[in-house]
Design a protein around this nucleic acid. Structure first.
Lengths: 342, 342
DNA sequence: TTGTAGGCGTTATCAC
DNA sequence: GTGATAACGCCTACAA
């Protein structure tokens, strides 16, 4: 066998028919093909191990079958689960999932978009959250216009300030609910560990925290807002600072689970007992939240399911089911051991 | 602006030249183009936000710029890191990284290969390890032949029984080294938690364990080999069994870190103290191994770096640097708190 | 220095 | 039921 690609023509020759007929068989076309010929074609395909060149198909149909997913970091459990959900749904349907880690860098994000545009991606999922940056917004807006002209479907997870289909997860509401719970448990001196400043999601989550305080008549103490970056390490660093102000704080609300887990680790490291001396809660319900010491009270955001729902939505939309609606996910309070009544 | 794709022809028209000239400018062709024309072309490209259709380019050049990566589960820290390494290196160079989670299912693995074949992937990284399964081997062998004819580069991480470039990580040696250490620390009653039976990597790692025992004159007790599956949960389940045989065991060697972390969690849950009552070691040095209770003694396999090396290798090979050699990674013993002398 | 023509593998259109 | 032909967007001879 030579090093030359096997094409529809080779199949046609072997099956003693025209390429057109082969194409009709491959695509289960409506156009009639005699049973006899069809069988010969099938046999030839089998024999030659032929599979149609999707690049050529793509050129013809103006479809790449590529779905781009842009995340902050695939090593972050949160994104890994979402991507897995998308991938498992999507690649059962002949699409390709193409990921990018952008570390929330404007430059990398734009680079990813350029590549996806050049590859004529059928859809793009903006999973990493919106960056709060003028240059980013402006360039993205232009890019998204261009993608529209290319018929690329763009999906934003959490609100994005562009004209895309935005999936709202209720980040602010989730934090509000869990903060309410913390307060219900008797806590009034509550520290908050923030997410990365440049992320709109951080802004939303903090808003939920503030809303709960206000609703419950607790004054916001700006000194109890600590910097974080949605990471374990960020949680650790914040907790180290908090550990020096233990008289001011009886509970910590973290902007996500990774932060909360890092905080608990550091508190333990500083010989501060959770939840006896201080309560800690998070958001996301990462798989590891169940296995921390102590186990973490949090809000479940069913991220894997979010991924499969995204996959299902994209698939339907790409098949021109224009009235298919996104299936919203439901968040849920998960009570574990890291929150204690006082 | 209409909904029609912008092509090289549109650019040519605007720049008042031929498509060929535009093509030459785009590709920095050797063929001379006057500065004047080049500038007009650049301006037109800018104005129209044109980017060449990589699908069409691919059809012409028989290159898809797609690199497929097949993993067991992207949620597994081990694979997430490798994929990140590959992606970060690769997508800086105009390639697309396309991932598949196959859960070590023969069917899914073959499905992924079929898709990658149809999409004429330029390279495929078999990162999930080789399955020990006759049907799988046979079908894969045939598939890999077909891919060869398509000029697809296939890379196996850990040995695969196919004619592909296999990257050897020294799994067996790593386990041997750490088991040696455990024995050096005075342990003779050592349990082993295995990886998934169907994985060749498991077989290799267990071999390393056995070799160390033998070398050190310790008889292998088959009752101290426990089933696992490279997961946290698998480690938990095994540890639950081990916790009932505490008189027979003073140390556990786990086939990977996830397993070790799950085992430690369960031991703690059973009120068995690590390392006071039992030592535990793993392999991989996952990021979370540093933050477990106690911190995990393990062998570092620099997986992220493995990923970037894979990316670099692929890039060079795809650019026909036929003598470029894979940069091997180095493993290293990481002593932490979960191993204690007796 | 520029342009024309043909072809990559597939499919839609039209004819038979 | 079947097949020839043109076209998708780009690039590589080859001409001029």
């Amino acid at each position: 066998m030579s090093n030359k690609e096997i094409t529809i023509k080779d199949v046609a020759k072997l099956a003693e028919c025209s390429p057109t007929t082969v194409s009709r068989v491959i695509n289960n076309s409506d156009h009639p093909v005699s049973k006899d010929t069809a069988e010969k074609v099938e046999a030839a395909i089998e024999k030659l191990n032929f599979s149609p060149n999707r690049i050529a198909q793509g050129l013809k149909s103006d479809r790449s079958n590529i779905i781009g997913v842009i995340v902050h970091d695939i090593c972050d459990s949160y994104f890994a689960q979402m991507v897995k959900g998308i991938e498992e749904f999507i690649s059962g349907h002949e699409y390709i999932v193409n990921i990018y880690n952008t570390s929330r860098s404007v430059e990398k994000e734009l680079h990813a978009f350029n590549l996806l545009k050049a590859n004529r991606a059928d859809a793009i999922v903006l999973a990493g959250g919106a960056l709060m940056n003028k240059e980013y917004e402006q360039k993205m807006r232009s890019m998204i216009d261009q993608l529209k002209n290319q018929n690329t479907l763009v999906l934003g997870i959490t609100p994005h300030p562009f004209d895309v289909k935005n999936i709202i997860l209720g980040n602010d509401k989730a934090i509000e609910v869990i903060t309410d719970k913390v307060i219900e448990y008797g806590h009034h001196k509550i520290a908050y560990i923030d997410g990365p400043k440049k992320l709109y999601t951080s802004y939303l989550r903090k808003k939920g925290f503030k809303r709960s305080l206000e609703k419950n008549g607790i004054a916001l103490d700006e000194n109890l807002i600590f910097e974080g970056d949605f990471s374990f390490d960020g949680g650790r660093k914040a907790a180290l600072k908090i550990s020096k102000k233990m008289d001011l704080v009886t509970a910590i609300v973290a902007a996500n689970d990774s932060t909360a887990l890092g905080a608990m680790w550091e508190l333990n490291n500083q010989n501060i007992k959770v939840p006896e001396q201080i309560s800690v809660v998070g958001i996301d319900n990462l798989p590891e939240a169940k296995y921390s010491y102590p186990s973490l009270t949090t809000i479940e955001i069913p991220i894997y399911q979010l991924g499969t729902n995204i996959g299902e939505y994209l698939l339907n939309r790409l098949n021109n089911e224009c009235d298919y609606q996104f299936k919203d996910i439901k968040t849920k309070l998960i009570m574990r051991d890291s929150l204690k009544k006082i």
